[in-house]
Every structure is written in structure tokens, then in C-alpha cells.
Design a protein around this nucleic acid. Structure first.
Lengths: 126, 126
DNA sequence: TAATCATAGATAAATACAGTCTGCATTATC
DNA sequence: GATAATGCAGACTGTATTTATCTATGATTA
């Protein structure tokens, strides 16, 4: 179990947006060369961030991407969830486990991590 | 990012051992049918638990597997680490990131989860 | 020595991840 | 209205990981 590379990229992308806040829309190419990944792959990650309402996109000439919310309101968890989804890390797969105790402990542990990630904002680290 | 099924099995296996503690060695077949998985696959997981010193194995007639430590000393984390390994969930992969701040936040969050898993013992849930 | 038991390796199917390619849709500007 | 700049979406590929099975081997003890 590891976080995916896409999550790694997404966090750095969002940090980049926060740093560049106030400037014009950022378009694909500059971001791609700053992070050193291919533009098409980057666009896939950005699309996920758009769907999660963290950034917005504008097509056409002078289009590009920009933050959707105030930079102080974007938590680590928001970004991670946009990429990894919102399912629990652990779900008991044994039969007849209505209220598996193991699962309860695992979910409580995960919740500890999640609440820390909700408290921390991208803005805190730029 | 999800926990693997093997981790799921391993936790239930250990819970089964704790329940059966005091009885004779458990051999592969009964555990396999109790958990409803194939004996050979089960043996792979058990081998990992043996290598992590959580259980021990004895070959030959009347052999089998048994707990290695007192049941009150086996934490969730011990079992999970035996299967998933001990590497961090997140490591920054960008270039020139001596002391990436994002990574620091992610590791601190992970640590919250880990310390909860270290506090909880399998014995607590049987 | 034979029955009981675990171990290790080869293999294979299924899934997930990372990344590329291609074509389409939208918009500012001329 | 044509054109160039831009993002969007889906198909596709290759690789790695996970899950699982089968087979053969090795160790122990009744």
C-alpha cells in the first residue's frame, strides 16, 4: 500500500498554483515543464482536480487553469481525495462480518490520519 | 491506495490464533477451511508472519503453527507491517527536494495512524 | 520408514498504475 | 467566419503488483 505517483504530482501541482496565485491562468505547458511530466498526463491529473472543484479550467485562447477556492481553504485531504477517491483504506472481506471489530479499529486508525490531513492546508507549506 | 487482501487475511488469521490460544498447534488445513482460502495461498501468508516472528511453525507429525509471543503483546501494526512492509506511504519523487515540506506533512499524518495501530492489540477485539 | 506437515519456486490470471496518442470542443482575435 | 491556442475525453499500451494455484522438495516424528 502506497500513495500513487499521481497524488504526489497533484500535491505539488496545487502548491504551484498557490505560489502563483493572482497571476493569469496557468496553461498546461508551463506547469508540465515546471514539474517535468508530459502535458497529456498532466492534463489527466488536472481534470481530476477540476472535477473535485479545486481548480477551474477555461478553454480557448488565453485559457488555462486557476484556483477555485481561496488558497487558505484547500486542505491536503481535499487534494488526496480528488486523486485517490474517498473509499476506506481497509474493508473487511470475510463473510458474515456484520460489524467486524478488526475493521472498526482499522477505520478509527485511518480517521486519525485523515483528520490530520484535513487540518493541514497547502498554503501552510509554500 | 488500499490495504491488500493479504493484510485482511493476516489480521483475521492472527485473531483466530488468539482465540485458539492454549490449544495444540494449528495446522494449515483447519485454518484454511475456517477462513475459506486455499491452503497454499494461506501458507504464503503464514510464512510472512513466521518471518516477522509473530508465529512459529513446526514440521512433522503433530506440527503446525502457534503464537510466538503473549497474545497481549501483538499489535495491529505488527501484523500489518509483516505483510505490507515498513516503507512510508508517501515519498516525494520530485527532483531537488531535500526536505520537501509536503512530504513532512504526509509523514506526520501517517504517524498518527501508525501510533493508533501500535496501541491496539489483536487481543482487544476477539 | 512412512505419514504428516511446512517451504519454495514456477506459473498464470486479474487488477491497478503510469503514461502516450489521437481527435474533438471551445474561445479570443484578426 | 477562419485560424490558432487551448483544454477534454477516451482508447490504448506496457509494466508492476496482487492474488492464487500447482508441483516438487525438505524436515520431523510417531
Amino acid at each position: 500500500m502506497k500513495y500513487t505517483k499521481a497524488t504526489n504530482y497533484a500535491l505539488h501541482i496545487m502548491a504551484y498554483f498557490v505560489k502563483q496565485e493572482g497571476k493569469d491562468n496557468l496553461s498546461l505547458q508551463p506547469i508540465a515543464s515546471h514539474l517535468n511530466i508530459s502535458p497529456t498526463y498532466l492534463s489527466k491529473i488536472l481534470t481530476q482536480l477540476v472535477k473535485a472543484d479545486l481548480i477551474q479550467s477555461a478553454p480557448g485562447v488565453n485559457g488555462g487553469y486557476s484556483l477555485r477556492k481561496p488558497k487558505t481553504e484547500i486542505s491536503f485531504y481535499d487534494v488526496i481525495q480528488a486523486i485517490e477517491g474517498s473509499g476506506a483504506l481497509f474493508t473487511c472481506e470475510m463473510e458474515e462480518n456484520h460489524g467486524c471489530q478488526i475493521e472498526k479499529v482499522m477505520k478509527a486508525a485511518e480517521e486519525k490520519m485523515v483528520s490530520h490531513l484535513k487540518e493541514k492546508h497547502i498554503y501552510d507549506v509554500v
